[in-house]
């Protein structure tokens, strides 16, 4: 039994915007009956690019119906440009969350929207178009690397299991799991590079006052919160040039790893945020 939110239950019981729009400006379909879920999205768009009506037809489970209903509610009245910003996360949030294994339902909603917008802009031909711009990774569910990469980035996915929950890739025969692993490693590496702070331009020589300020600030805002997570604390006893004397308190004070904590955490942090030749000494 899935742990669906009340919002999900409300929307699969009484979905909104079910059906066709007879003179729709755009019709986009994703998924297939073989895959176990499919969504057909109908949009009416006015000359100011505002989505004036949205309807859907869905083949799928409760959360697929609820996600489709949520999507249509979210995009109605929005311009194409604003609707384009909606992520699968937003759909899941609108529903008050989805079970991890069902996140692919929110991804399906986003995919349908994306496809509808592309069709609206004439980026693909409606008849017999080819939307395969990526390499098919999962043959069982026809999932392309482009969707996998996008979903990893937008949802900060970390494991193959996450990728399967969100895109279904790897969920059947499992033969593509090593490919998913490769993609995941590339994406995680990419995220790492994007996240790393720019190196300080030049080594600066600090004045004593500035150094003291920075040491105090770093201990208060970075080191102490980290130690407090484990029930510890730190007291700054003295600053003598580049020697910083501290005492560990709370659960840290009788921790056999206090020496390691000092070196690894306190000194590392001070070297990172203040100056790279600071030494930390333990006082009482």
């Amino acid at each position: 039994m899935w742990d669906y939110t009340d919002k999900v239950k409300e929307l699969y019981k009484n979905p909104k915007n079910v059906g066709k729009i007879d003179n729709a400006d755009v019709v986009a379909e994703v998924g297939s009956i073989a895959c176990g879920d499919a969504l057909k999205l109908y949009l009416k768009v006015d000359d100011k690019n505002v989505i004036t009506d949205a309807k859907f037809e869905t083949f799928g489970c409760g959360s697929a119906i609820a996600s489709s209903s949520a999507l249509t509610e979210m995009i109605k009245g929005k311009t194409i440009e604003d609707a384009e910003k909606i992520t699968n996360r937003d759909i899941a949030d609108y529903l008050g969350g989805l079970p991890e294994e069902k996140m692919h339902c929110s991804v399906m909603g986003r995919e349908a929207l994306e496809k509808a917008i592309a069709e609206f802009r004439g980026e693909v031909e409606i008849q017999g178009y080819n939307d395969h711009d990526g390499e098919i990774i999962c043959k069982c569910f026809g999932v392309e690397d482009t969707l996998i990469r996008k979903t990893i980035r937008e949802n900060s996915l970390k494991t193959v299991e996450d990728v399967t929950n969100y895109t279904k890739a790897g969920g059947a025969c499992g033969s593509c799991i090593h490919k998913i692993e490769d993609i995941l490693n590339e994406e995680l590496h990419f995220a790492e590079i994007m996240k790393a702070p720019a190196k300080p331009a030049e080594k600066r020589e600090l004045t004593n006052i500035r150094r003291m300020q920075l040491v105090e600030e770093t201990i208060a805002t970075i080191v102490r919160p980290e130690l407090q997570k484990d029930g510890g604390d730190i007291e700054l006893l003295d600053i003598d040039g580049k020697k910083v004397m501290v005492a560990l308190r709370g659960s840290c004070s009788h921790c056999v790893l206090s020496e390691v904590t000092l070196k690894n955490l306190v000194q590392e942090r001070l070297r990172e945020f203040v100056e790279d030749d600071i030494t930390v000494i333990e006082g009482k």
């Binding site: 699969y12 019981k13 009956i33 176990g36 879920d37 083949f59 799928g60 489970c61 409760g62 697929a64 119906i65």
Partner: peptide, 13 residues
């Protein structure tokens, strides 16, 4: 042309 879990949820209701 319809999906089993959705049927079960409606039956459960």
């Amino acid at each position: 042309f319809i999906e089993g879990e959705a049927i079960l949820l409606y039956l459960d209701e």
